[in-house]
Structures are given as structure tokens and as C-alpha cells.
Design a protein around this nucleic acid. Structure first.
Lengths: 163, 163
DNA sequence: TGACATTTTCATTTTATTTTGAAATAAGTT
DNA sequence: AACTTATTTCAAAATAAAATGAAAATGTCA
């Protein structure tokens, strides 16, 4: 029964919370293991050591280490200081706003910037090609104007997350 | 030079537009070939046949067919009727609003729904476990309340796309 | 410092995704 | 109908991504 679960066993509830986050990270195109680790930490009342994460999720040392690293990289997880303890303990950032905000900042922005550079380059190419088809010119302009919209999107999302 | 490109060759501009969309679809976790096909159609002044898509992008028959299928599935591409022509011609939906709107509807919604079901299930599990740790109960409630926020996000994005 | 515990790194293996192309299907023409 | 052209499907191959675990690096304590 769930109430006397072994340390290496997950309760139904834990399993379901983990599944929830696995689905979420997969929707964002991130590896499943990130969802597992985050989910476990999210539902855990206490910070967990890497060792506990490994045994409870049945994942390898490397996965655990790399997963935690990535999760810390966008502040989804932080190390919790436990006095007199040698090993590190990890806990989840449970504030969804911060979580999503950080994620957008770290993962989306680079793509947007890369896109902007490409559009700048297109601008140059277009000036250098006076013979370009009018339709093509229009389409590129459309892209450029839309990119400016996109710039407003991120701030707006942040506003939403603050609400 | 670019201005005298062979039919099977891409101009610098075309290449750059395609690269732009490849980046975009990859940011969304979709296969590169979708970006290539869409990009080519986007910058093409005329609808293209599958054959032209294959030869210009140097991709296989299967990729072209499957890629177009997927792109049509969320209305990023449609077939353009050309009278008296045997083969199908494809053109891009150039309205970014529709494009993004369709994408969110098709790809995001299912994930959100799956998440909602999981949360409902958690609700049940929680009622069945009176002995659950208070922290865990709180965390699950947090998840549920946040999920309601998420419901408001999609409509808001649509609003934005309309602006 | 030396012994031990813990975490990180990284080459290899495993797994999952994407692409390919040949065969099957469909659609049009004579 | 037979023939041709175009498209879809799908099993196999190629590629890409993720997980593994042993070795290296780092950190801690006596």
C-alpha cells in the first residue's frame, strides 16, 4: 500500500505528478528525464540528494547529474543547503511564474535573436538584388514586420505571468 | 551568380528565408524538413509542385510527401488549384496569425487537455489518501490553480495574434 | 595530506526520430 | 481498360538525441 512505500518506490500520487511534468516538458521539446527529476522534486516535501533521485527514479548517475545541471541552468531547481551534510540536496522552484519566465528567457530568446540576425541579413541581400521579384520583396517585408510583433510578445507573456 | 540561378538552385535570398523558417520550426521542436518546405513555399511567388519541391530542396519523395501532409494538417500549406494541371500545386499560408493560431490549437491544446486529466486524476488520488503529507497536498493544489491560469493563456495569445 | 564521498564529464551504447526509396494506391488520359 | 503520371505508405537505413557508467575531478573530513 502507498502509505508504507519503500524508499525506492513511488506512490501513485508521486507517479502522477511526475507524469504531469513529463508531459509538460515534452510539450516544450525537452527530454523526458528533466520532467521526471523536476516532478519528483516538486512533489517531495523535502529536498533530495542526487542519490535518492537516482534510486527512486531508477535513472543513471549521469542522467541525474546532467538533468540536474540543466534544470539548474534555468533555475527550475536549486541546491538547498543542509547544515552538517556532505552531499548536495536539491529542491524544485515551485513558483510557476518564475519557472516559465526563466524558461522563456533562456530557451526562446536565443532563437528570436538568431531570427533577427537572419532578417537583417535578408535586408542586405535584398538591397543587393534590385531584380528580386516583387512578391518576394513583399514576403520578406511581411516577415520583418511580423518579427517586430514577436518582440512585443515576450514582454506580454511576462505581464501575464505576473498576473 | 544568384540572378541567373538554375531551376534546381536556390538563390541566396531563398536560402536565407528557408534557414529562417528552419530555425523557427526547430525552436518549436518540429523536424527541419518542415521548415525547409514551408520556407521554400513561403518565398516562392508561385505555387510549387511536389516534384519541384523535391528537386529544389534535394529531399526525397517520401519526405516531401510526408512533410506536406503534416504542414497541411495544421493549415500551414494548402493546395492551390491550377486549372488544366494534373499534379497538385502547393502554396504557403503567409498569414502569420493564422499560422501560429492553428499551430497552438493543434499542437498545444492536446497537451493542455492531457494535463488537465492528470490533475483530475490527482484530485481523486488525493481524496483517497487522507494521510498524504500537507506539503504534497499544497503543491498539488498549486498545480491545479496554476492550470486554470494556463487556460486563460491561449485565449490571450489569440488576442495578441489578432492585434 | 591521505582516505573517502560526491559530483561532473565524456566516450560508448541505447533509444527515438527522421529520411529514404521502392511498392502500393490513386487519379487522369487516350 | 490499359497506360501514364502523381501521391501516399511503410519497412529499412541513416541520423540525431538521450541514457549509461566508468574514469576524472572536486570537495570534505580526520
Amino acid at each position: 500500500m502507498a502509505s508504507t512505500a519503500q524508499p525506492t518506490t513511488l506512490t501513485d500520487i508521486e507517479r502522477e505528478v511526475i507524469a504531469f511534468f513529463v508531459g509538460a516538458v515534452q510539450a516544450l521539446g525537452l527530454p523526458k528525464s528533466l520532467g521526471e527529476i523536476y516532478g519528483l522534486l516538486y512533489i517531495s516535501p523535502e529536498p533530495l540528494s542526487m542519490d535518492e533521485i537516482m534510486t527512486r527514479l531508477q535513472i543513471s548517475l549521469g542522467s541525474a547529474s546532467q538533468g540536474l545541471k540543466q534544470l539548474r541552468s534555468f533555475n527550475a531547481v536549486r541546491t538547498a543547503y543542509k547544515p552538517g551534510q556532505r552531499r548536495d540536496y536539491y529542491e524544485a522552484e515551485t513558483e510557476m511564474r518564475k519557472l516559465l519566465g526563466n524558461f522563456l528567457r533562456e530557451q526562446m530568446r536565443p532563437h528570436l535573436e538568431a531570427g533577427k540576425e537572419r532578417l537583417d541579413h535578408l535586408e542586405e541581400l535584398m538591397s543587393a538584388s534590385p531584380d528580386i521579384a516583387p512578391t518576394q520583396r513583399q514576403r520578406i517585408q511581411k516577415l520583418q514586420s511580423w518579427n517586430q510583433h514577436a518582440d512585443r510578445l515576450l514582454p506580454m507573456l511576462n505581464l501575464f505571468l505576473r498576473s
